[in-house]
């Protein structure tokens, strides 16, 4: 129950207490995309926030099942908003992701 709280050790100076905010590189990209698109006016922050809250609420209501991934829900919320403003649809993302999955192993990022 308290496992996620335990990772936080004793207080450390500000420059070193920024624990790993992003567990994996894609999380920072998902974060960066949302902030960049907000800055560019593609959607408003309340629109994104409402989508994120909706995703989190849905996850919580589902109970057992998918393990909690904050940035997973963040990414889903971002796709929701981009679909609703007709910038990029979830279907397009899935199609592209599937074609990326076809790349041979060892492809250069």
């Amino acid at each position: 129950m308290s496992a996620p709280l335990d990772i936080e050790g004793p207080a450390a100076p500000p420059r070193s207490n920024g624990e790993l905010v992003f567990a994996e590189p894609w999380e920072s990209r998902a974060f960066g995309m949302a902030v960049t698109l907000y800055d560019a006016g593609v959607f408003t922050w309340p629109e994104f926030q409402a989508a994120l809250i909706a995703r989190i609420t849905t996850w919580e209501a589902a109970g057992e099942g998918e393990p909690y991934s904050y940035y997973g829900l963040w990414l889903a919320a971002l796709e929701d908003v981009l679909t609703s403003v007709r910038a990029v649809s979830t279907d397009e993302v899935i199609t592209r992701a599937r074609s990326l999955a076809q790349r041979p192993p060892g492809h250069d990022h």
């Binding site: 590189p25 998902a30 698109l37 981009l82 910038a87 599937r98 990326l100």
Partner: peptide
């Protein structure tokens, strides 16, 4: 779909449409 793949796909689509600049995002 792994989220990393999904994120990459979204970033590609947004870049192609001129909605994000990956360098500025870095």
């Amino acid at each position: 779909l792994p989220p990393a793949l999904r994120t990459e796909a979204l970033e590609q689509l947004l870049t192609e449409r001129g909605l994000i600049d990956p360098k500025a995002m870095n």
